[in-house]
Design a protein around this nucleic acid. Structure first.
Lengths: 167, 167
DNA sequence: AAACATTGCGCAATTG
DNA sequence: ACAATTGCGCAATGTT
């Protein structure tokens, strides 16, 4: 099933109003430039962005007012019509179902990402520790090498002495 | 807790485009500052989104109280409507300004997070490489130690032989 | 082509 | 009051 309540956290979901963006949106999607912003050029349309709109969006959370969206005559009609047709997709069941599924997928994906990040962090720490240990090990070995070399040179000296003496 | 609620059925509410942010925006008019903000501040305009979408219309929840602003497009003259508004903030100017600022902060914060993550990842890789190098180094040193020990033992042997011989 | 996964974004609630 | 974070849903994309 789908959602539904969930224990604790959850919010409501399903029919909640929250939507913000809605229609037209085009918030992102477009080629984003590296810096992230801009570019809608491709399409010609302009965002309208500025749109402005304020709040409308509001979700009902208790407070909110919402305002009417319509109150305005404007272009309205020009925008997407839809009357309530739910045929294709948009305001109803099918749409809602898709949204709900996506929301779930999103949550899942984000949890995954979060875990991944955490893991990477841990790994970095672990590697750092390991690194430290290895450096210590190297230090020890280096000293050992030095000591051995020293002994060896002593040996050679003695050998030479012996040589000299003996000869 | 969240709440939510609105009667169950309703769904949406407004739907409009929100975008503002400046990002894509600027359709025409305003100067947008580099950092992205601007605009509305100057005018204070409000909603009007164009959007709207109709369909839902109906659900008008009775509750919506407010709406206010007048829906009008005009330039509003700059200012907020006045009318009833619950004092604090909600639908206009002030609100919009706050939102805009927050949106900017959010983008900033996320960029930062992204960079941080990337950095951690790089660091992990780097540490891994370093680790590998250190292990090789250890291997070399270990061999060296072995070799030296071997030489040393040879030395001692010779010394002994010499000893024996000489004696 | 339908389902799931990612990702940028704005909103709102929190936190400092 | 205000910036920084964080959880969340939306929608465009990407992947299967």
């Amino acid at each position: 099933m789908s959602i539904s309540d969930s224990p604790a956290s959850s919010i409501c979901i399903a029919q909640m109003p929250q939507m913000d963006t809605g229609l037209y949106s085009q918030p992102m999607a477009f080629p984003k430039t590296p810096d992230g912003r801009s570019m809608e050029q491709m399409m010609g349309f302009v965002p309208y962005s500025s749109c402005l709109t304020p709040s409308s969006t509001e979700r009902a959370q208790q407070n909110q007012q919402d305002f009417s969206q319509f109150l305005l005559p404007p272009p309205a009609s020009t925008l997407r019509p839809m009357g309530q047709k739910r045929g294709p997709s948009k305001d109803s069941v099918e749409y809602r179902l898709r949204r709900e599924r996506n929301n779930i997928a999103v949550r899942k994906s984000r949890d995954k990402a979060r875990r991944r990040i955490q893991l990477t962090q841990q790994r970095a720490l672990q590697l750092q520790d390991e690194n430290h240990s290895l450096q210590l090990h190297i230090q020890r070995l280096s000293h050992e090498v030095d000591a051995l070399r020293h002994y060896l040179s002593q040996c050679h000296l003695q050998a030479k002495e012996q040589d000299t003496t003996g000869d």
